[in-house]
Simulated scan of single mutants.
Amino acid sequence: MLRNTSSGALPTAFRPRGPFSSQSGDVTYVNAEAVVREFHEALARSSDMAVAVAAITALTSVIRSSSASTVMGLEKELKDAANALQRCNDTAISLKAGCDLFLRYTTRTSALELDNFAMVKKKLIERGRHFADTSKRARAAIAEQGQRFIRSGFTVLCHGYSRVALAVLRKAVAAGTQFNVIVTEGRPDETGITTARALKDSGVPTSLVLDSGVGYVMEKVDMVLVGAEAVVENGGVINKLGTYQIAIAARAHSVPLYVAAESYKFARLYPLSQRDLPLERKQIDFGPLLPPQVAVDNPSRDFTPPAYISLLFTDLGVLTPAAVSDELIQLYS
């Protein structure tokens, strides 16, 4: 199984002693509460802030405020801070992928070989900021790539609430493309209603369909556009529950399915079935008519195999599912 089974308890190395870290003898301690607080404040500053980018922002602050006096100490602080962030939600795949990529990018550099530690720290801060800035620009790059696939008169089917998918649609509107969108309801958290509201505000003709009505409307659809919680090693995606069945219906009707996803969501996971996904459930209330003896199975996400995906719109370019593994190797090498 791929689930992170780490406990929520903070080990000794996470004792709070300063803004982000403090040093006692040769041991550097990370203030987990401060790191997590910085993460939540970054999310609160903007409703468009992605979870992974908020984590990257918090980790950059750890470098800037580090009390470590050696490269090894600084690397340990970053790893401890990343672990603290992942404990916020140990099933959040994009959070873990963002932390892993940030650690790879900042610590795999020739700057670590410099004799002057102050210069090493300066270079790492620069790399951290560059990574954060690049991640923030990813959505705009994807929107530019993806909007070219939306033609005038198209009907686009969307599922769930994805900021990057919305960015693609808004970019197409800005380019003067006339199209309409069908949005699934997105139970149990009504993400489709949130998406429909955002599209209405952007002037896009939008209709809402029940999640169970996807097969019924698919014959009217020209393309499916979804986001992703994670893009995995074989080119498949993990996304909101229902994405897989939409992909099956799209393929049956020869409708292309496109995925919009930032490269910091590329995760080193290789699920072979739905059972391999980190388990996360959404609360749902069926009311008093459902007998209490009836079990409710309410996973929040599913896995769509690469065979059902036409293309992925990413900040690395427009990729086929087969190209994802090569990009993952480069990102993590």
Score class of each variant (00 low, 15 high):
A34K: 03
V36N: 10
V36D: 11
R37M: 11
R37D: 15
F39H: 12
F39P: 06
H40K: 12
A42Q: 08
R45W: 05
R45E: 14
R45M: 08
S47E: 13
S47V: 09
S47N: 08
D48K: 10
D48M: 07
M49Y: 09
A50M: 11
A50D: 10
A50P: 05
V51I: 14
A54P: 08
A58V: 06
L59A: 02
T60M: 05
T60R: 11
R64G: 08
R64K: 15
S67G: 11
S67M: 11
A68P: 00
A68C: 04
S69R: 15
T70K: 01
T70H: 00
V71A: 09
L74N: 03
D80I: 04
A81Y: 01
A82K: 00
N83Q: 13
N83F: 11
A84K: 02
L85M: 08
Q86L: 04
C88P: 01
D90F: 13
T91V: 13
A92L: 06
A92R: 06
I93H: 03
S94D: 15
S94W: 06
S94L: 09
L95R: 08
K96M: 06
G98K: 00
G98S: 07
D100K: 04
R104T: 14
Y105D: 12
T107Y: 00
T107Q: 08
T107A: 02
R108H: 15
T109Q: 08
T109W: 03
T109I: 07
A111C: 09
A111T: 06
L112F: 04
L112V: 07
L112I: 10
E113R: 10
E113S: 12
L114G: 02
L114M: 13
D115R: 07
D115Q: 10
N116A: 09
F117S: 00
F117V: 03
A118Y: 03
A118F: 05
V120I: 15
V120M: 08
K121D: 09
K122M: 10
K123C: 11
L124G: 01
L124D: 01
I125D: 01
E126A: 14
G128R: 05
R129S: 12
H130L: 10
H130S: 13
H130A: 14
F131N: 02
F131E: 03
D133Q: 12
T134N: 12
S135M: 07
S135W: 05
S135I: 02
K136M: 13
K136H: 13
R139C: 09
R139T: 14
A140Y: 13
A141R: 12
I142P: 03
I142D: 06
I142N: 06
A143S: 14
Q145Y: 11
G146A: 07
G146I: 05
I150K: 07
S152I: 00
S152Q: 08
G153I: 06
F154R: 00
L157N: 09
H159F: 07
H159S: 11
